[in-house]
Amino acid sequence: MSTLYRYADYLTQPIPESFPSPVRNRERINPLATGHFFPEFFVEEECIINGAALLGHVKQGISLHRLTAQPLVVAFYSVNWNGYGDRLLEQLYDSHAAIEAAGARLLVLSSEKKKHFTAFNPHPLPFDVAWDAQHLIARKAGIYKETDPLWGRVSGVNADVPTPAVFLVTPSLEITYSFTDQFMQQAFSPEALLAAIEKKLAISA
């Protein structure tokens, strides 16, 4: 007996050509931008991965206000960005001396704890690195939401991590330079960051 049409009676309605996306109505991330003010945050002592000029002598944690006596570059990083993250950290390493010479400091906020971070970056770093536990600071920066995961936008990212971002924050907490890359298709420009630092200090002089 032929089974060619045995399930035909169950197809009472046409099959849709496409199904609606389960995340079509998701709440999107809303990154901070130039002209905004960076919300206050606190770095706990146990979250310090690498202590340098900013965090080297911290014993009980430190607030953003105390980190911004000079303009502060706040850069987010994750090992789960793969080669993109490697390039960004290398660019920050290469431009760190120029950032400090221009009158600013650099703070890198890692999505991973110290053990995981140092497993991928075993060499000494000249700048401060801290763990952004539960992505609390990334949430404040508008670059992380559970409802708009990076892995849902970028193929090859298989972890729940923030969007790449770099900000220049003044002592008044105003953002005078911002770089965010929601689809990881752009190239961070250290030259643009340095120009923003020099412009800010020239205005302040």
Rank of each mutant, 00 (worst) to 15 (best):
R24P: 01
E46L: 10
K140C: 00
Q134V: 09
A98N: 09
R153G: 08
P124S: 08
N30R: 10
I143M: 14
V108W: 07
G83T: 10
V79K: 10
S78E: 10
D86G: 00
A101C: 02
I137A: 03
A133M: 10
K114A: 07
A104P: 10
Q91A: 09
R24W: 08
G56H: 03
N25V: 11
Y93G: 00
V23G: 05
E17P: 02
E146K: 12
G152C: 07
I49D: 00
I49S: 03
P122R: 06
V58F: 01
G35K: 10
E17Y: 00
P31C: 13
K115Y: 06
F41W: 15
L89S: 03
N82E: 12
Y144A: 08
V108R: 02
P39I: 05
E17Q: 07
A138W: 11
R153T: 11
L109R: 06
D86I: 04
A53D: 14
A98S: 15
V108A: 11
L72F: 08
T147F: 11
S63G: 04
K115Q: 03
R28M: 14
L55I: 05
P16E: 12
A119E: 03
E17T: 08
S21R: 15
A130R: 00
W151T: 01
F42E: 02
E17M: 12
G103Y: 09
F37I: 02
N82Q: 15
R87L: 10
A52P: 00
L107F: 05
E90V: 14
L150S: 04
K114Q: 13
T118W: 03
F41G: 06
L150Y: 11
L92V: 15
H96Q: 15
L106W: 04
F76M: 10
V58A: 04
P16D: 14
Y93A: 06
R24S: 11
R139Y: 03
D128T: 02
I29Q: 12
T147P: 01
